[in-house]
Simulated scan of single mutants.
Amino acid sequence: MSASTITPALSVLDLVPVRTGQTTAQAVASSMALAQRADGLGFRRYWFAEHHNMPAVASTTPPMLIAAAAARTQRIRVGSGGVMLPNHAPLIVAEQFAMLEAIAPGRIDLGIGRAPGSDPVITQLLRQSGTAGDVERFPSHVQDIALMLQPEGAALQFTTGREYTVRATPSATGAPEIWLLGSSDYSAQLAASRGLPYVFANHFSGQGLDRALDLYRSTFQPSAVLAEPRTFLTANAVVSPTAEEARARALPQLRMMARLRRNQPLIPLETVEEAQQGLADAANADEQRLIDATVANWLVGDAETVRSALAEFAARHGVDEVMISPVAGSFASESLDGITARSQTLDLLAA
């Protein structure tokens, strides 16, 4: 059985995690190997997130990672989950993804988000280009990108009456599929009003999922690209041969999330042993409460348990696809440039 024959269909979200002692080059090599593995297993799509200035996350530039993954895969869709649009000029985003579509025709997804993807200082540095960083212009920037990506391009109207045509690439034969991403009502309503597909960032925050999906579906307006609402769900997942091993492999990411939510200094992703020792040494009730609350929304366990939970999760929310973020941590003895931890999750779900 492959992932393409499982209900729901499975996809992957990758933040390119960097663990203790690992270089960026090793982390990226691991993600490229994982993308190839997902392609071979029949997963539907493979998306890269955009985050900045985080010691445990190397996915700063989705377009570059997408190009590298597209060159190493054959059939899987590759894309962004997502490009944080206020950080970038719309024309640059359109040009980058038009080129990606030319490199891998029919396999490119452009997921667009509105969040900064980092702290306020980095956000300020990213938005020094002026009006490109105006969050209030997010809806018009999304529309601009969609138009510039079309083969006919977008026509700019000057006050003099003269028109100026802007194309993301000289002679396009197709365009990436655009998705709006978000963890609040805003993107759900915008996607519905523009007739675009939508994904709620459930892996980051499960709060408000039902409301966002209901808003999207109930207010959806058909468009030239989409006749009916189209959405899928994201979820953090750790699958191992035993539930005990899965819980252990989940701990490094859980501790990182707890550090993030407690505004503590961020560090590279711990090994399983470091996370276990750190939790034992700290004996912090607040951290443990955060970990317990966070893991309750994750899919952690053996293959049979998680497959069943995935099917129930998808059925409950009326979707036919779940994008998992494989957040399994590594034991210290595992190779720094290998994919044992995260690949195990994909392998067992597709077995």
Rank of each mutant, 00 (worst) to 15 (best):
residue 41 L to C: 08
residue 188 A to Q: 03
residue 340 T to K: 03
residue 339 I to V: 12
residue 297 N to P: 06
residue 190 L to D: 04
residue 141 H to T: 09
residue 94 A to R: 09
residue 179 W to N: 01
residue 174 G to A: 15
residue 240 S to A: 14
residue 338 G to T: 02
residue 160 T to D: 14
residue 266 L to T: 06
residue 143 Q to Y: 13
residue 272 V to M: 15
residue 223 S to P: 01
residue 261 R to I: 09
residue 294 T to A: 13
residue 5 T to P: 08
residue 324 I to C: 10
residue 268 P to F: 15
residue 243 A to T: 13
residue 314 A to T: 10
residue 83 V to R: 01
residue 41 L to M: 13
residue 22 Q to A: 09
residue 263 N to H: 12
residue 320 D to Y: 01
residue 14 D to P: 09
residue 212 A to E: 13
residue 241 P to I: 13
residue 286 D to L: 15
residue 151 P to T: 12
residue 212 A to G: 01
residue 12 V to P: 00
residue 95 E to C: 06
residue 320 D to G: 02
residue 87 N to S: 08
residue 104 A to K: 03
residue 311 A to Y: 03
residue 261 R to K: 03
residue 214 D to R: 06
residue 209 L to M: 08
residue 177 E to C: 10
residue 55 P to R: 10
residue 143 Q to M: 14
residue 284 N to P: 04
residue 60 T to A: 03
residue 239 V to N: 01
residue 15 L to F: 12
residue 263 N to K: 01
residue 233 L to H: 02
residue 287 E to C: 02
residue 23 T to R: 07
residue 181 L to G: 07
residue 169 T to G: 14
residue 85 L to A: 07
residue 18 V to A: 12
residue 189 Q to P: 01
residue 17 P to H: 02
residue 147 L to K: 10
residue 245 E to R: 01
residue 319 V to P: 04
residue 294 T to N: 09
residue 290 L to A: 09
residue 111 G to C: 05
residue 66 I to K: 01
